[in-house]
Simulated assay, not measured.
Amino acid sequence: MKNNLDKLSLLVVDDSTINQRVVAMSLRNTMGEIDLANNGMEAYRMYCEKHYDIILMDGRMPIMDGYEATKKIRDYEKEQALDSQAIIVALTGSDTDHEMRACLDSGMNASMLKPFRIHEFLQILKDFN
């Protein structure tokens, strides 16, 4: 991963426009580029067009949930033999063991609980540096 966050691209995936706005506003002066997706299918299509460095992924969404989208993104990365994989962080409302296991099993790198907390997110990214 690149060292400067202001050079990184972020895709925020959440079916709540309020949650999208909170994240985007919180990170607007930190990340280089922030795009928004409303569901997993949209996120998958956007990732295939533009390989984001980081994806903040809600777990439960209509059309395609975050777990299925993550699996598709990971399969795409393997098929395309990409040099680097996106860091996918779950932003979930549930902290059950089942939910945490589902995040990791789908291929997500880490998870954090809603509401979004910028310091926690930045610490997760720092851990991948």
Rank of each mutant, 00 (worst) to 15 (best):
M1L: 13
M1S: 12
K2G: 04
N3V: 15
N4M: 12
N4C: 11
L5V: 10
K7G: 05
K7C: 08
L8W: 00
S9F: 01
L10D: 07
L10W: 02
V12F: 03
S16W: 09
T17A: 03
T17Q: 10
T17N: 08
T17E: 11
I18M: 09
I18Q: 06
N19G: 00
R21G: 00
A24L: 09
N29Q: 08
G32E: 02
G32P: 03
E33F: 08
I34K: 02
D35I: 01
D35K: 09
N38W: 01
N38D: 13
N39E: 10
M41C: 00
E42Q: 13
A43L: 07
Y44I: 00
C48P: 09
E49N: 13
E49P: 12
K50V: 12
H51P: 11
Y52R: 05
Y52A: 02
D53R: 03
L56W: 07
D58L: 07
D58I: 08
D58G: 03
D58Q: 07
R60P: 00
M61Q: 04
A69M: 07
A69H: 04
T70L: 03
K72Y: 01
K72F: 00
I73D: 03
R74I: 12
D75T: 13
D75A: 11
Y76E: 08
E77V: 05
K78N: 08
E79G: 00
Q80K: 11
Q80L: 01
A81W: 13
A81Y: 15
L82A: 01
D83F: 04
D83T: 15
I87F: 10
I87Q: 08
I87G: 10
V89F: 02
V89G: 09
A90N: 10
A90P: 08
L91I: 06
L91P: 04
G93K: 04
D95S: 14
T96Q: 06
H98Q: 13
E99Y: 07
C103V: 09
C103R: 07
D105Y: 12
S106T: 11
G107V: 01
N109D: 13
A110E: 12
M112V: 13
M112Q: 06
M112I: 14
L113H: 08
K114T: 13
F116C: 11
R117S: 12
I118P: 00
I118N: 11
I118H: 07
H119W: 05
F121Y: 07
L122A: 08
L122H: 05
Q123I: 00
L125M: 10
K126E: 14
K126M: 04
D127N: 12
N129C: 14
N129F: 06
